[in-house]
Design a binder for these strands. Sequence first.
DNA 1: TAATTTTCTTGTCCCAGTTCAATGGACAAG
DNA 2: CTTGTCCATTGAACTGGGACAAGAAAATTA
Lengths: 193, 193
Amino acid sequence: MFDRINSYVYNCTILTQEEISFFNSLLECKTIPKKTILLHEGEVCNFEAFINKGCIRSYYLDENGFEVTLQFAIEDWWVSDIASFHEHRPSDMFIETLEDCELLMLSPQTKENLLEKVPKLERVFRLLVQRNLSVLQSRLFKTIATSAQEKYVDFITRYPTIPQRVAQHYIASYLGISPEFLSKIRTRMSKEH
Amino acid sequence: MFDRINSYVYNCTILTQEEISFFNSLLECKTIPKKTILLHEGEVCNFEAFINKGCIRSYYLDENGFEVTLQFAIEDWWVSDIASFHEHRPSDMFIETLEDCELLMLSPQTKENLLEKVPKLERVFRLLVQRNLSVLQSRLFKTIATSAQEKYVDFITRYPTIPQRVAQHYIASYLGISPEFLSKIRTRMSKEH
DNA sequence: TAATTTTCTTGTCCCAGTTCAATGGACAAG
DNA sequence: CTTGTCCATTGAACTGGGACAAGAAAATTA
């Protein structure tokens, strides 16, 4: 149950056996069916969820119903709207399961409690946010500076298991292109080889 | 000298007089002429700089020499490559002064020392990264989902003082459009009113 | 002040990517 | 087995924004 998350934490900091047990005891494990919306735009996000099993995406929706996928998350990833979670502000994104999921969840109060008792975990969460930031920076750069095909190749190289798990139009919405055009890119690429 | 930064910190947490003095004593104040590159791609970023006076931009450069401006920063903002700074990794961005600047700078060792002695400042820096993340998320969304004109209007609304201080082609490179097209948008908008 | 460099504008042409169909699978439900 | 729903594909017509070139204006420098 806690193997994945404990080995994740172990990569960032080293805890004693008691600290690990305490940490694990605060996590709430939830099983959630696919196509469930975990967070609606306008709600305050009250969880940080570690994915033990399953696949989730977060996305924005503009006034015309156009979706932009911010992130896909699979096993060993965290999902949350960090700003909403920490500042108790209404979120402007949606978070939705794409597969049946098993999640380990942390509420704001529990997290505060946890960090107070086990300050070494500060580092884990700081690294998490920093990596998020740095991934997002390079993604913004690529979104602006490269062609749709380059972005697609970059995506399947960086996240090779995701395309097998999620519908293609979600990937298009992650790349910022229309589903039709992604389809054209794919046929073009398969002809080239 | 320390008025700006102290009032910045005061918005996030409250320090004692001694803590403030200690904090200030660790900051290295530097005066830097305009058009100076503070960080080159490939270097490890060894500073977090608070801008007391002046204007700075950070940007990426692709293999064809195409620039994407990641951020403009003016008084009361911090500038750094956070990932490079914390993980001592070579950076993939440039940071450059656009005006003569007065900066308060922190090195990685000093920051560590500081956070150890004044843990309350953890909060200040965590909020900084979180806000960065959340601004970047909404920028990515707009980059993908809105037209060049909308992005421009959004930019001048959100950062009304920046256009008066930086060259227009830098703004184009922030918006992810060509300088010529930005110029066309501007003439189009001025004709409309 | 003039000279030089940098930045901004304007016009023309062009292409990557969109929009809007129409078609055909794959799957689930009755 | 059939019907409906959701997706991926394909094609035709269209458009936002890019590339290039040439000139005007502004900012630096001498």
